[in-house]
């Protein structure tokens, strides 16, 4: 009975790990990690270099064997052998170094992987066209992979990763080395996949991308998962409210007025002319009162808007240190 309840509990999660540990030599890359990701979530994994993100993703993809611990994908135990073809069919893994076959054309490469994942005609052809359109490589279908740019190669790798419509997508630094336009394109693709119902675990150093994409985040440090919650919760707990205020008048007048408000914790002079970033501990009503107060004091306000601290600031504020 207890087992049945446990099974049902595990079934709920797209990913569940228990006591997951990986040791290289005497260095523990992933330490007794317990991770649970609900189905349909986009889970962002952040952490400094050497925190164990890549090792964790490799273990979840069955590309690396854990030293100890267990991994369950959709309630099914993941093992690194020949015994779980069904589970492998449900996984898509894009590593940070996406090796490709330079001698193949884009179409042949995808066709080969589609066959490896048991896609039969006519579905195979349809799916190939779909993913090529999604990653915007239809015009390159007959080009040799060797002739593609880095961004195109990265998109082709993503196409290979999703060709078999996996239910869980594991993306390790998928936007590293891409220019801003290519990154934006990549983000758009991820959003489409999310809408299609895939559970996505994504690690990235570009935290603004993660903030835009993710529903939950996990912060890793020295092999430990030090934080794992929904993005909403994280902002609620750790993000301070900030108000951007610009004036046409003197900065001294504005600053002296701010000093009079007990909810103002401090401010920072932005590089823009006559603009301050104010750390504010009050609620929306309090910020409205602050605005009223400034206007009554005849300070010529041109900009007044509230925002939350971004993910990057929260991450840096948490004091996580780079390992290397």
């Amino acid at each position: 009975m207890v087992n049945l309840i446990e099974d049902q509990k595990m079934d709920r999660f797209a990913i569940a790990t228990y006591g997951l540990t990986k040791q290289f030599e005497r260095q523990i890359a992933v330490n007794d990690l317990e991770l649970q990701v609900d189905r349909g979530e986009v889970y962002g994994l952040i952490g400094p270099n050497g925190a164990g993100k890549t090792t964790l993703i490799r273990m979840l993809a069955a590309a690396e064997e854990p030293t100890t611990g267990e991994i369950y994908i959709n309630g099914e135990r993941l093992l690194r052998d020949d015994s779980n073809p069904r589970l492998k069919q449900s996984l898509g893994y894009l590593p940070d170094d996406f090796p490709l076959y330079d001698d193949l054309t884009v179409w042949d490469y995808l066709d080969y992987f589609a066959r490896l994942y048991y896609l039969k005609q006519p579905k195979r052809r349809r799916r190939l066209n779909e993913v090529l359109e999604l990653v915007d490589l239809t015009s390159k279908r007959d080009s040799l992979i060797a002739t593609l740019s880095r961004g195109m190669k990265q998109r082709l790798s993503l196409a290979r990763t999703i060709i078999h419509e996996p239910v869980l997508l594991l993306l390790d630094e998928p936007v590293s080395g891409l220019d801003p336009r290519a990154r934006m394109h990549f983000r758009e693709i991820i959003k489409v996949l999310q809408e299609a119902g895939m559970t996505i675990l994504i690690s990235s150093h570009v935290l603004s991308d993660l903030a835009e994409l993710c529903t939950s985040v996990g912060i890793m440090e020295l092999g430990f998962l030090v934080e794992s919650c929904t993005l909403k919760d994280l902002y609620k707990r750790l993000s301070r409210q900030q108000i951007i205020i610009s004036t046409l008048g003197k900065m001294d007048d504005l600053e002296s007025e701010l000093k009079n408000n007990s909810l103002v914790e401090g401010w920072e002079n932005l590089n823009k002319d006559n603009t301050l970033k104010v750390n504010f501990s009050g609620n929306p009503e309090d910020s409205s009162l602050l605005l009223k107060q400034l206007i009554l004091q005849e300070i010529p306000i041109t900009e007044f808007h509230c925002k939350n601290e971004d993910l990057e600031t929260i991450f840096l504020k948490m004091g996580h240190q780079q390992v290397c």
């Binding site: 020949d82 492998k88 090796p99 490709l100």
Partner: peptide, 15 residues
């Protein structure tokens, strides 16, 4: 050496 064999390993095809 290219690392492509690892991808094939991850597919549901038997060794």
């Amino acid at each position: 050496s290219r690392g492509t064999l690892n991808f094939i390993r991850l597919t549901p095809q038997s060794s």
